[in-house]
């Protein structure tokens, strides 16, 4: 599946006048590509994901998906910051939720959900409630909930933001492993430049509000990647380049009130 965002602009109607969140955002994502998005906070990264997911309507511009599944089949799943698991459903029911919404019968959705729960090593927590899980386990469940409906596109909104750095590394590796197997398009929003470099094929660097695309940075790293291995020297260069782009944006956005 290919995705093209053409001149996406989103203006919110706030109480004290219109608030421009995204301005003229144009980019495309190739089939099976892993695209990272970094930018200062409040630059409309989440808005961008919601526009692509169809949860919000753009003020102008459009999102074109070619090779997308037919109506009624899952096109995209979203992984939320702080996982967004329903506290009142067991792990298994949470994972199966998407399948249920797509009308898959109970026996099949439980089988499919259980297969995913097993493969991320949470079998013994299948009947636990999210409140009984650690943050890391919770986000694992959040990720497999998105994978289980098997959409061609995954939208991830700072999914590892709340995790400690070791857990984060493990989950990044896990994500790459599952992604490598299922070959989906991933659009991954993060504020962590290292994370973006480790995971992405290409990074979109965004400006402060209203968010625009400042630069597209390709990441010339081979796949499959082993995150715990030492990185080639080029990665350091890329990191400083992106930080150079971002620094001014972040400084500016510090002076813009929300």
């Amino acid at each position: 599946m290919k995705i093209e965002c053409q001149q996406l602009t989103k203006v919110y109607e706030a109480t004290n006048g219109p608030l421009s969140s995204l301005e003229d955002v144009t980019f495309s994502v190739d089939d099976r590509e892993f695209v990272g998005i970094v930018g200062p906070s409040g630059c409309g990264k989440t808005t961008l994901l919601k526009l692509i997911a169809g949860l919000l309507e753009p003020t102008s511009g459009r999102v074109i998906m070619s090779g997308a599944p037919a109506e009624g089949y899952p096109r995209s799943s979203m992984v939320f910051q702080d996982h967004g698991l329903f506290p009142w459903m067991t792990v298994l029911d949470n994972v199966a939720f998407g399948l249920q919404m797509y009308g898959i019968d109970r026996a099949e959705r439980r089988d499919r959900a259980r297969a995913f729960v097993d493969r991320v090593g949470l079998s013994q927590f299948a009947d636990s409630y999210p409140g009984q899980l650690s943050v890391g386990m919770g986000q694992r469940v959040g990720i497999i909930r998105a994978f289980v409906t098997d959409p061609p596109l995954l939208l991830m909104d700072e999914p590892f933001g709340a995790l400690d750095s070791q857990t984060r590394l493990v989950l990044q590796e896990e994500l790459l492993r599952i992604w490598g197997e299922y070959q989906k398009v991933v659009i991954f929003v993060t504020h962590d430049i290292d994370e973006a470099i480790r995971l992405s094929d290409r990074i979109l660097v965004m400006t402060g509000r209203p968010g625009r695309i400042l630069e597209e940075v390709p990441i010339p790293l081979d796949r499959p990647r082993e995150l715990t291995r030492r990185k080639p020297a080029a990665v350091g260069e890329i990191k400083w380049h992106i930080w150079g782009l971002l620094e001014e944006q972040v400084r500016k956005s510090l002076w813009v009130a929300d």
């Binding site: 949860l55 899952p74 979203m78 939320f80 702080d82 967004g84 939720f97 919404m101 409906t149």
Partner: peptide, 16 residues
């Protein structure tokens, strides 16, 4: 609000 967004993102209808 996040729970409504999650439901929405999986295409849940009003009754669901």
């Amino acid at each position: 609000h996040i729970y409504f967004e999650v439901a929405d993102s999986y295409g849940a209808g009003r009754m669901q």
